[in-house]
Design a protein around this nucleic acid. Sequence first.
DNA 1: TCAATTATTGTACATTTGTTCAATAAAATC
DNA 2: GATTTTATTGAACAAATGTACAATAATTGA
Lengths: 192, 192
Amino acid sequence: MNKHDLRILKTKHNVHLVLTNLLKKKPLAQIKVTELCREANINRGTFYFHYREIGDVFKELFEEVMFDLRESYHEPYRHTEFLEVEKLDPKTVRIFHHIKKYEDFYRIIFSKEVSTAYYYMFFDEIRAICIEDRNVVYFGEPSDYLYSFSANAIIGLVIEWYRRDFQETADEMNIHLVNILKIYGNRRNEKE
Amino acid sequence: MNKHDLRILKTKHNVHLVLTNLLKKKPLAQIKVTELCREANINRGTFYFHYREIGDVFKELFEEVMFDLRESYHEPYRHTEFLEVEKLDPKTVRIFHHIKKYEDFYRIIFSKEVSTAYYYMFFDEIRAICIEDRNVVYFGEPSDYLYSFSANAIIGLVIEWYRRDFQETADEMNIHLVNILKIYGNRRNEKE
DNA sequence: TCAATTATTGTACATTTGTTCAATAAAATC
DNA sequence: GATTTTATTGAACAAATGTACAATAATTGA
């Protein structure tokens, strides 16, 4: 019940460590509750007292990654000089650097075997960032649909990046984004 | 081994029917292999001869939905009159009607409990459609990143639609899309 | 420090999973 | 129609899941 109970903190911290280590050896879907408990020296009943499945533990780990993503938008940004396109909001481009930092996590959440729950955690975070940036990037009255459109568009880039095994640097990804936004701008211009 | 073996066809057809029925009663994640086999009157060994898990069966069902999506882009379209925006490629807008048609399936693949595998099946299909439409919609040299960006952007709309329980009609979704593409066009215009 | 609270343990149990294998039934092939 | 091929069955097994509960240990709060 009480989140600050030392026993709970100790157990969860322990479980987090063990899962992190197991993830270095095998994919998430192959990690058994029994196995995790044995390595963590806790009773299986204790596990089920806190979680429903292994995925719930990973969710807690990924929560910290999402915290870092949120955080990274509240500290001054150091990469703006690189981008040649002065019009693009520098905030947008921190995403790729963050992902590179937590590459191992994103390899998991974009893999085919895991639940979509983590995708949505990421989506909601990116979407929130899009909303914060609303004044800078968009014109006209923005809608919920626009935010979901924009957020998932950026994630589309990340999916492509993931499928290419994150070969490109974060800065190269920024350039891709800039170029694409250029194309989207031109498209309508030439049509009317 | 032989996909046309009558025994296999019969078994799979049977399994498909039973899963479809079970899905009316409970979510995918709660359906057990044992349960499915009991209802289908097949041996559990037979199941494991063809599939690894329940999800593999659902994948086969969803494959047919993806086939319909692909198909719908090869037959004449009947809804173009509605759209007031003459510039938008009519092909794009068939997506929402297709989704409405298979609403029950999309409720599953966008739910939090299922694997991302189905999302990727959908993504790849939408992406292929974007590539086919390349000449019409985009200018400049299109890249793989652009296609993933565009495809996932549209899926972003679908996610928002899903979260609103598919309340809007398909035609209303088309309008949302048109409006958003307008905004994206304007954005750059006003900046330079 | 002591009493109250509750997380953790150990155990037990029914169920499901995933795999193996020989026997059998069904379909393909000739 | 006879033979070959192979999908299906049934049975058995180890392992993992998920749940329940009383006993115990650790932590909290007074």
